[in-house]
Amino acid sequence: MTPLRRPVIGSPFQILLLACSFALAAYAGVRLLADDRPGVALWWVGAALLHDLVLLPLYAVADRAVVQGLDAGGHRRWTMYVRVPAALSALLLLVWFPLISGRVELRYRSATGRSADGFLAHWLLITAVLFGGSALLLALRLRRATKHRPPAVH
């Protein structure tokens, strides 16, 4: 094993910089935590943990399943035709989940004077266009590949 050659303190510039950063963060953090200390701390740390330990592994596993599934059928190079529409659709759902799911429907309707019904429909239609467009591109590409393939020698 390589012996520890580096100094255990590390860069003094980095320590000074981070100390300065922590002091400013603490100044604002005291005010951030003033009203609901456990709630805000939970949201802050929870956001990082939820992303790093739940959301990211979930989509990584889903992606790997798609890649391996396509690979098993010999279609690995078509991965992006599935990944792009699926990821874009999921991204829109992630960002606009409160509106799309209808969980804020009552407040939204009462505050803005508009119905929230359209959001789910719009998301579904965009999803249809994304997958349909991707399927069309793939079909065109396959067609072109068949055309340009040299005739089989018998």
Binding site: P7, V8, I9, G10, P12, Q14, L18, S21, F22
Partner: peptide
């Protein structure tokens, strides 16, 4: 190192 530990907390 100490500096690296601080960076990870940051």
């Amino acid at each position: 190192s100490v500096a690296h530990a601080l960076e990870r907390i940051s």
